[in-house]
Design a protein around this nucleic acid. Structure first.
Lengths: 349, 349
DNA sequence: GTGAAAGCGCTAACAT
DNA sequence: ATGTTAGCGCTTTCAC
């Protein structure tokens, strides 16, 4: 027990042992207090808490989880921190997990994707109690294996289908349908679509087309491919607006695309909304800017987050339970960018 | 050593012990391989790696950090995940830390602020090797103590001043100065300012006023308080534009405010940019939308992130080193929202 | 190069 | 209600 002089700043941190000594109790009593057990007399509890305070004790999560074999931590892998809807989803997810004493740790899939190391690996090495994959994550074959190791749910992505992974997502089909229907109810018939990428883009497009058909507008179906961003949508809209049969309304696959279409209309000299109604998707704060004020489909991301949280809790409880796909109903947020077509009968609803 | 039947899904995970047995070597040899030591013969290393692969071994971070007394993890506390510039900063921060074998773990200050538990506590309990505080974090007195426990740097906030904490931020004074100067060089004299909140808002406002004075425009100084968002700026701009001496240019404290001013101009019937030039701040993707195309000050957030990373590494290296405040030079991104005032002499630059 | 042994700080039986 | 004991999985001297 030679006392080694502490290196600069390298003070040995107090442990429960020190707390116990200081409070005049045993190690395990301290441990019980730490876990909020009610098997401890108020007097001793107070003494322990005071001792902790005095010597500046802070629990060591590594030691705790090594011993307890659980971390109380959920790994949340985000596809792309820049997606504004991700925050809405987290707003729904967090309270659910917090209620159950779980904390979230985030990783940005995009950041670590560029480098060799996978964040999922990190999470697994940390032995997180659960994993939430948010958005479209580039799927390595490893993910199937991972889902076998730790309770996993996927939120806001439809790209993965595993027997042991729950999927919670907005019902894109219904959302795109309601957007299209809204325009039809306003009297529009020449309704074009600027499509987005990935599975989500495909679903929204399909819903648009089927809804058009269901309303007898199959001859008016017009789709231009966007790139999910402003630029691609701009080019797509220019094409649509300079063609022979100009649409009176455009349903864009997301808000960014909608803004691209808006710019295109400006540049081509088509007035909005008088000559062109626009509907976006995602109901991001872009759509809420009074300068834009776009009608947009709200995917109810907060609800997606809540349900993802509940699904994860259920799966932690019973890892072998059957996988579910849970689609949340979106709602249409009507704003200034959509108006009845001039001379049309007033909308049904 | 009674073999306990595994509960459902509760398979005991393989440890280095199992790897060692499988590979026919000792525990510590496995440990060396794990750490990439070059003291291991290629043959044995191969055998160990193969064994790991075969039995599906995954290191246990808790055990490792308990033993090694370091986690290789940096806690990054974000003021608000919704701030778009945060991602730019992380883009700069991440590679620096990664180069040095450190990974980042994020926390959203806002999420956990609503609840009782502090995320900083969590990071401290995890024994992160360092802490990066990004943006304006609601400062508890605890933060001073925390900075004493773990190397800490603050990025993009000027609100904290501690002897042991480095601050890296954009030079808001210079940024606001260059915005104001840009308008003056375009021939504008009646330049108004919509101010923002917090220390940052105050600095930008001050720089605006001093620059106006320095150019002999003290009589044209006009400031309306915004709220950092679109709404407040809208109201502020309406006031400015309906007053007697209408400004020909507005410098807004951030891009959102700038858009608020843009809407106000629209509604009041003032054409932009012909009758009103606008400058924003932050150069977010809002400013880059071709529909808006705002001149905006770019705070060089990626560079802030890089320098924050370097500062943290230096402080981890030498916890007692003196605290520095490092201001990064912003640059003005000129776009379509600013034009020379009609009849003015062509700009100097 | 390789292996044995001693903890890191905590939890969780089990005894009192 | 409180103390005792045996690990959790890994790193790290220190011998060989």
């Amino acid at each position: 027990m030679t006392s080694i002089p502490p290196e600069q700043g390298e003070v040995r941190r107090p442990t429960i042992r020190d707390v116990a000594k200081h409070a005049g109790v045993s190690k395990s009593l301290v441990s019980l207090v730490l876990q909020g057990s009610d098997q401890v007399s108020p007097a001793r509890r107070g003494a322990v808490l005071q001792a902790m305070e005095q010597i500046g004790y802070r629990p060591n999560a590594a030691a705790r989880s090594l011993s307890a074999r659980r971390t109380g931590t959920i790994g949340v892998l985000l596809s792309h921190l820049r997606n504004p809807w991700i925050v809405d989803l987290l707003d729904g997810l967090h309270p659910i997990l917090h209620e159950h004493g779980l904390r979230m740790l985030f990783g940005d899939g995009r950041l670590n994707q560029r480098t060799d190391e996978s964040l999922i690996q990190t999470f697994l090495e940390m032995r997180v109690d659960g994993l939430v994959l948010v958005g479209t994550i580039p799927i390595s074959p490893a993910i199937a294996q991972i889902a076998g190791e730790v309770p996993t749910v996927i939120a806001s992505s439809r790209d993965i289908d595993l027997p042991s992974v729950d999927t919670i997502a907005a019902d894109d089909w219904r959302g795109a349908e309601s957007a299209t229907r809204h325009l039809i109810e306003l009297g529009h018939t020449r309704i074009a679509h600027i499509s987005g990428r990935g599975v989500v883009g495909a679903i929204r497009r399909q819903a648009y087309e089927e809804t058009m058909r269901a309303c007898g507008l199959e001859d008016d179906i017009a789709v231009e491919a966007g790139d999910g961003g402003e630029e691609g949508a701009y080019r797509a809209a220019v094409k649509l607006l300079s063609g022979g049969k100009r649409p009176t309304a455009i349903f864009a696959s997301n808000d960014m695309s909608c803004i691209g279409a808006l710019s295109a209309a400006d540049d081509v000299g088509v007035r909005t909304p008088e000559e062109l109604s626009l509907v976006g998707y995602d109901n991001t704060y872009l759509a809420r800017l009074r300068h834009l004020w776009l009608t947009s489909v709200d995917p109810a991301n907060e609800e997606v987050g809540r349900r993802a949280g509940r699904a994860l809790l259920a799966r932690i409880d019973d890892p072998l339970r059957q996988a579910h796909v849970d689609l949340v109903e979106p709602s249409l947020q009507v704003r200034g960018s959509t108006v009845p077509i001039p001379g049309a009968s007033s909308p049904t609803t």
